[in-house]
Computed example of a mutant assay.
Amino acid sequence: MQGEGKLIGRRQVFVRFSGCNLNCNYCDTPLSRDSDYGDELDIDTLYKKVEELITPDFHSISLTGGEPLLHADFIKNFLEEYNLPSLLETNGSLPDEIEKLAGLVDYVSLDIKLPEHKAVSNWDDLINCEIESIKILIEEGINTYCKLVVQPSTQTDTVSAIAARIKDEIPESSKIPLVVQPASPLDFWAGKTHKLLEISEQAGEHLEILTIPQVHKLLKLR
Rank of each mutant, 00 (worst) to 15 (best):
residue 200 S to T: 10
residue 3 G to C: 04
residue 184 S to R: 07
residue 53 L to V: 01
residue 206 H to M: 01
residue 152 P to E: 02
residue 34 D to A: 10
residue 185 P to I: 05
residue 57 D to A: 13
residue 55 T to D: 13
residue 44 D to Q: 07
residue 67 E to W: 00
residue 159 V to A: 01
residue 3 G to R: 04
residue 4 E to L: 09
residue 106 D to T: 10
residue 155 Q to M: 09
residue 32 S to Y: 03
residue 190 A to E: 15
residue 162 I to M: 11
residue 184 S to C: 03
residue 97 E to M: 12
residue 130 E to K: 03
residue 205 E to L: 15
residue 141 G to D: 10
residue 151 Q to C: 06
residue 167 K to Y: 13
residue 16 R to N: 03
residue 184 S to N: 11
residue 157 D to H: 08
residue 106 D to V: 01
residue 85 P to L: 09
residue 90 T to M: 05
residue 35 S to F: 11
residue 136 I to A: 05
residue 159 V to E: 00
residue 133 S to L: 04
residue 61 I to F: 04
residue 2 Q to V: 11
residue 87 L to S: 01
residue 137 L to A: 06
residue 43 I to V: 15
residue 9 G to R: 01
residue 10 R to V: 00
residue 32 S to M: 09
residue 209 I to D: 08
residue 201 E to T: 12
residue 119 A to F: 01
residue 214 Q to E: 14
residue 63 L to C: 08
residue 181 Q to M: 12
residue 189 W to F: 06
residue 5 G to E: 05
residue 166 I to F: 07
residue 167 K to S: 14
residue 4 E to R: 08
residue 98 I to E: 05
residue 8 I to K: 02
residue 148 L to V: 09
residue 1 M to V: 09
residue 130 E to D: 03
residue 68 P to W: 07
residue 107 Y to L: 14
residue 199 I to Y: 05
residue 139 E to Y: 07
residue 17 F to S: 01
residue 64 T to G: 06
residue 137 L to W: 11
residue 7 L to G: 10
residue 194 H to W: 13
